[in-house]
Structures are given as structure tokens and as C-alpha cells.
Design a protein around this nucleic acid. Structure first.
Length: 446
RNA sequence: GCGACCGUAGCUCAGCUGGUUAGAGCGCUGGUUUGUGGUACCAGAGGUCGCGGGUUCAAACCCCGUCGGUCGCCCCA
């Protein structure tokens, strides 16, 4: 027990319901993303360290102490991606994607950050990511955010999540505002908490969302971005907000909202929840017009967001668990061998999910068949084998009938009719198999 | 990186102020007359009480360290 291998801290093994929730988030993302014309993109999980170090901002916690960085055998410094955007920007430049004009890209997969794990926060976590590249217009922001909103609605968690929106202005606005903030906070230096004093040097914008009560008082009187926006920045934000309104996306203006990474400009937004303890953000992003240029590429304005798969999973109701349609129960080896043909025919010919239960006594096999969620049990023993027959038991009603093996195809028909009934909203379990068979065969059942 | 709480069978937990062979439920395996589940009953397997050290006649229980978990700070998805 003590020498059991342990998972690396902050990593998770998901199974059963947890895995089903995770998959449901990814599946829903894949479905909704197509509705907005986002194309799938796959990029490496690691990059040269500089890709992340230079773009995210040297002073951010992610870069200064949370990256998984190592040297490979040739001595190059590599880093496991802490997020997607920088890697996608790099791929854009590496491959000359400007030839494609405007690009809408979606990706998902693991990211890594060396952090102290807690609820909704892990060292290996998984993100959904959406980016619109070569898109200078505010309509891109609107479409991107609408996609995020739609995803959250499709996942059925919209009731727990609200959209907070802000603008950080263009570089000129941001610089002016930041200078004013710095001056304001310097003036109240002795009233600030320890953490915020440190932020004064590293990232003064961060003081705005401090949770410290003393800081909040000073924040309340701090200058707001609105007073420093250039005319262009103000127009841009107005178009985003009015676009969201006409797209039917509700939001709350959050003037103190700032985003972690240095590359953000103009639009910044977060879908937040209070259901995840200290981790409020479930999906967040913004505009990063200067990023690709700063990495040595062409001037490519862009917007994007990332969402935490685990965080979304935790808000989800449990999706229905996967179950098989049919349980095959052979009573001996000869029956099992004969049954392979029937099982193969059901799977390949009828798209029927079949699981074989061939261990334990009959009672155990039935118990396992029952807990598998199968609707029908196919029972095959020496008696049936001798006459090319098959027992079919409806596990919902308990009714059982003996049919010729040649009629196995009916099972597929029966199951698809049940599925159809469920899809058209009919209640109940539907007819049991024996009754259905009698009806469809016009009473010539034996 | 900082703080608080926690760590007993595969899982969820009980174990009184330290005292003799550490328990339950679920799960697992087998059985309760011939090949039938979703309800019962019987039996069995499974734990060096996270790990290391200390206090004590005696420690799952007390102390220290360490690892891990949970929650918060920070930061962020």
C-alpha cells in the first residue's frame, strides 16, 4: 500500500462520471464551435521557453514561477504550455498563416502550471480555446463572446455564470490610465496591504481586484479607464457593447476587471461563477492586437478566449452514463463461441452495443447484465444451441422469449424503435421485446 | 510561496479520556438443489491505521518531521 505509485501532485485521473462530464464539455465545444465556423487547430504541448516568457509578461506569476520549464538533451530550454494563445500566435507566424486572411480557430487540450492545487485548480488542467485572428473589427469580439455565451448555455450552466466585461483601451489609453492609477496608489501607499504594495512595482492594475478590505476603499476612489480612453478606444468599446446587446448577450460592466497577461488590449471579459470557491473564472479572454507583431510577425489584431474544462465540468449536472444495449450471456464455452457470430452481427450490422458476461454463476451473470444498463439479455446455453435458438429477455419487464437465431436481426430493429420513441418524447419504457416481436411478426411467433 | 484543516480495507467512514485478536456499509468472490437480474440470507478475500522518528509499560489515538489531500491567500482556465 505504501509503495503504490502515486499520481503527480495536481494531476487527475478521471473515470466514470467525472470522465463523462469532461467528455461532455469537449463534445459540446466541438459541436457549438462549428455553428460559429471555428476550425480545429492542433499545436504542440511544448514550445521554446521564450514563446511564453516574452509574450505573457515577465512579471506575471505564470512566467516568473509557474512554468514547467526544462532543458532537452540538446540544451534548449523548453516549456510545457501554460495556455494556448502564445502557441497559436507562434504557429501563425511559423506557417505564414496571414495568407489565409481572417482565421477562426478552436483548440483544446492539457496545459500546465506549477501551482498549489485546490478546488478548480490543478497543475495539469485542460482548456478549450477559441481565437479569431486577423480581425481588427469589434464584430469579431462580439462573435467570439457570443460563442462563449452559447457554449455556456448549451452546457446548461448559464444560470450559475455571469459575463463581466471591460475595456483596457488601446496602448495610449492604457498607458495614461496606468500612470494615473500608479499616482493614485502611490499617494495612498501606506494604506495598502502587503500584497498590493508588491503589485505596485510588478503589476499595478492587479490592485484593482484585490480582495483586501482596506485596498478596496482605495480602489473605490481610483481613476477609471473611461476617463482615459482615446476617442478610437471609446468607439471600439461602444461597438462591442452595442453588438453584444443586439446579439442578445447579457453582460455586466466591470470597470475593475483586468486580465493577467500583458498582451491584452481593448476588450477584456470573464464568465464568472461563485460556485467554485476561489476560482471564479470559468471562461476568460480578450483582445491582443499587438501580440503577433511583438513576437516578430506581421501586424495581426486578434481576440480570443480560453475556458477551463475541469471548471466547466464541475458546474455540470451528471450526464447520463454510457450503457450497452444488449448483454450477451453464454452458459458454456460452446455457446460463447457460437455467440461471437451473433454479437458481431449485432455490432456491425445493427450498430448495437453488446457486452458479454461469461464469468461467475448464472446469478452473477444476470446481476452484472442488469447493472450494465442493458435493455435486453441474450441467453445461450446447450439447450438453445442444439436447436439454433436464443433466449431474449427484456430486462425492463422481465419478459423472456425463445426465438430462432436467424431472427437476431429483429433485435436491432426493436432497439432502434425504442430509441426513436425516446427521441420523439414518448414516455415509458415502450413495449417489451416479446410483445413487440409478436406484433411485428403478425402473431406468427412461437 | 504563505495559512488552516485532514490522511484507518478497493470506495465512504466509525474507532469513547492512548490499553489486549482494528470495525461497519458499499463493492468484490463463492454459496442458499438442476441455466435467470433489478429486493433477502450465509460465508470468504482484503488493512504493517500515509511514511519516518519521538514520548510511554502500552499509540490508529499524544509530539515533531515528511509526503499527499482539501479549503483559503496569491494567481488564473
Amino acid at each position: 500500500m505504501s509503495d503504490k505509485p502515486a499520481a503527480i501532485r495536481g494531476t487527475n485521473d478521471f473515470m466514470g462520471e467525472e470522465a463523462a462530464r469532461f467528455d461532455h464539455v469537449v463534445d459540446t465545444f466541438a459541436r457549438v464551435r462549428r455553428l460559429y465556423g471555428f476550425r480545429s487547430v492542433h499545436i504542440p504541448v511544448f514550445e521554446h521557453t521564450g514563446i511564453f516568457a516574452r509574450t505573457l509578461g515577465e512579471t506575471t506569476d505564470v512566467v516568473s514561477k509557474e512554468m514547467y520549464t526544462f532543458e532537452d538533451r540538446s540544451g534548449d530550454s523548453l516549456t510545457l504550455r501554460p495556455e494556448f494563445t502564445a502557441g497559436i500566435a507562434r504557429a501563425y507566424i511559423s506557417n505564414g498563416w496571414q495568407q489565409h486572411g481572417r482565421m477562426k480557430l478552436a483548440a483544446h487540450g492539457p496545459c500546465f502550471r506549477y501551482e498549489r492545487p485546490q478546488k478548480g485548480r490543478f497543475r495539469q488542467f485542460h482548456q478549450l480555446d477559441a481565437e479569431i485572428l486577423a480581425a481588427p473589427d469589434p464584430q469579431a469580439d462580439v462573435e467570439l463572446i457570443a460563442f462563449g455565451q452559447h457554449l455556456i448555455e448549451e452546457l446548461g450552466v448559464a444560470g450559475n455564470v455571469t459575463l463581466e466585461l471591460n475595456t483596457l483601451g488601446d496602448p495610449a489609453s492604457r498607458a495614461a490610465w496606468q500612470a494615473a492609477l500608479l499616482e493614485h496608489f502611490q499617494a495612498h501607499r501606506d494604506e495598502l496591504g502587503e500584497d498590493s504594495l508588491r503589485r505596485l512595482d510588478t503589476n499595478p492594475l492587479r490592485i484593482l481586484d484585490s480582495k483586501n478590505d482596506g485596498d478596496r476603499k482605495i480602489v473605490a476612489t481610483a481613476p477609471v479607464i473611461d476617463d482615459y480612453l482615446t476617442a478610437e478606444a471609446e468607439d471600439f468599446f461602444a461597438e462591442v457593447t452595442s453588438g453584444l446587446t443586439s446579439a442578445g448577450v447579457g453582460f455586466r460592466r466591470q470597470a475593475r476587471l483586468v486580465r493577467g497577461f500583458d498582451y491584452y488590449r481593448h476588450t477584456a471579459f470573464e464568465f464568472v461563477t461563485d460556485a467554485l470557491g476561489a476560482q471564479g473564472t470559468v471562461l476568460g479572454g480578450g483582445r491582443y492586437d499587438g501580440l503577433i507583431e511583438a513576437m516578430g510577425g506581421p501586424h495581426v489584431p486578434a481576440v480570443g478566449w480560453a475556458a477551463g474544462i475541469e471548471r466547466l465540468s464541475m458546474l455540470l449536472d451528471a450526464p447520463p452514463s454510457e450503457s450497452v444495449d444488449v448483454a450477451f450471456i453464454p452458459l458454456d464455452d460452446a455457446s460463447r463461441a457460437r455467440g461471437q457470430m451473433l454479437v458481431a452481427a449485432l455490432r456491425r450490422g445493427g450498430s448495437v452495443a453488446v457486452e458479454t458476461f461469461a464469468t461467475g454463476n448464472m446469478k452473477k451473470r444476470m446481476q452484472r447484465a442488469d447493472s450494465s444498463g442493458a435493455r435486453l439479455a441474450l441467453i445461450l446455453g446447450a439447450d438453445e444451441l442444439a436447436e439454433d435458438m436464443l433466449q431474449v429477455k427484456d430486462l425492463a419487464s422481465g419478459e423472456q422469449v425463445r426465438i430462432p437465431q436467424a431472427e437476431t436481426g429483429f433485435i436491432g430493429g426493436y432497439l432502434s424503435e425504442l430509441r426513436l420513441m425516446r427521441l420523439t418524447g414518448m414516455d415509458g419504457d415502450g413495449p417489451d421485446f416479446p410483445a413487440w416481436r409478436t406484433r411485428t411478426l403478425g402473431g406468427q411467433a412461437q
